[in-house]
Design a protein around this nucleic acid. Structure first.
Lengths: 187, 187
DNA sequence: CCGATTATCGCACGATCGTGTTATCAAGGA
DNA sequence: TCCTTGATAACACGATCGTGCGATAATCGG
């Protein structure tokens, strides 16, 4: 038997190189060669784990969503219910350096998805998951009819995220805005 | 004197070709050649009006924002104050086919701006303008302290727009959500 | 009608793109 | 130790990229 590597793990490693290229140089700089250079592997090796560029991008898009979803699912923040809700939602927004990179990547893929049905499908799953999270939080935070609250909360969170990514709001301003909204909901 | 064309007008015509390529094929398909083909001119002619590709994209980005801003500024919808506010904001969201295309273009440029400081600067002006519009509407709609209302309204509008663009919400659902929020503000 | 000037085209250049193909390397069972 | 087989590198191919450049067409003052 020859040398065998864990394909799943290697694909993750290569997807992370895609993320770093997007975060550093922008989504327009993605190519097989730039990702290969970023990962430290040859373009031929990259091809061994992804048949095409589109397959690489789809995997990188799915994985950044899965990672964020899993991270948020595992959260168990301390404090009151109101504080817990704020902490969970803060993890979905570009409020620190790491989350800013993550949001930029998701946002870049979202724009690619506007012209690529395969990517768009992945994106819709992400938004459904985030809505479900908002619905779960809304159920805990306010009594009765949580769907309307969840829809608006979802819009507020994503709107503020876009405003931070675009440089329109500072992370602090967005955090304050989210807190003010949650205070109104809870109070 | 030789033949002279209106450079400003020709640049607009070429920018509109950029928009059509983005709307039909996605932002990843923009190139000098695809835009030239879409516009019906040669790539050499295109170069006569834009020195570089980046200059073309920056102009197309600025123009789509300027066009939308001017269109909204000229709006004078009928009805009550509440109805007027709803009509103006609806024009900023992807709720019909034309606005959907316009929002897609802005969104695509926004993603490019994440990796291109020159484009990012244009985008910030757009968000400032949209915030000013929300501030103006908030002042009319609710008494006292309009800044907090404007910030949240701005986030709701852009959040709903993203959800429509991503296929997460139907245009009708987003319109209903906006209406519900405005009703709460006014009532 | 002519010359000056602008508009437009078409192509060439080097770079880079995605994707095959081929060869070499490495590792574990026979 | 050798052989099988997966891992990896290196390169070739055609296409397309942004851009520069020279030739031609079109236009109007003289």
């Amino acid at each position: 038997m020859p040398k065998v590597v864990d394909h799943t793990e290697r694909r993750r490693e290569l997807a992370e190189a895609v993320w770093r290229v997007i975060a550093r140089d922008g989504v327009a700089e993605i190519s097989i060669r730039t990702v290969a250079a970023e990962s430290g592997w040859s373009s031929g090796a990259l091809r061994h784990y992804f048949a095409t560029r589109d397959e690489l991008l789809a995997f990188a898009s799915e994985l950044v969503i899965a990672r964020a979803t899993e991270r948020i699912r595992r959260l168990d923040p301390p404090g009151s219910l109101r504080e817990q809700v704020g902490a969970v939602l803060a993890q979905t927004m570009p409020l620190d350096a790491e989350r800013h990179i993550e949001s930029s990547i998701m946002f870049a893929f979202l724009a690619l998805g506007l012209g690529d049905p395969a990517l768009a499908r992945v994106q819709r799953l992400h938004f459904s998951g985030m809505y479900d999270l908002c619905l779960h939080l809304a159920r805990q935070l306010v009594p009765g009819g949580p769907e309307a609250v969840a829809r608006r909360l979802h819009a507020v969170v994503d709107g503020l995220s876009v405003h931070v990514l675009a440089g329109h709001l500072s992370p602090e301003a967005a955090a304050a805005e989210l807190d003010a909204y949650l205070d109104e909901l809870a109070g």
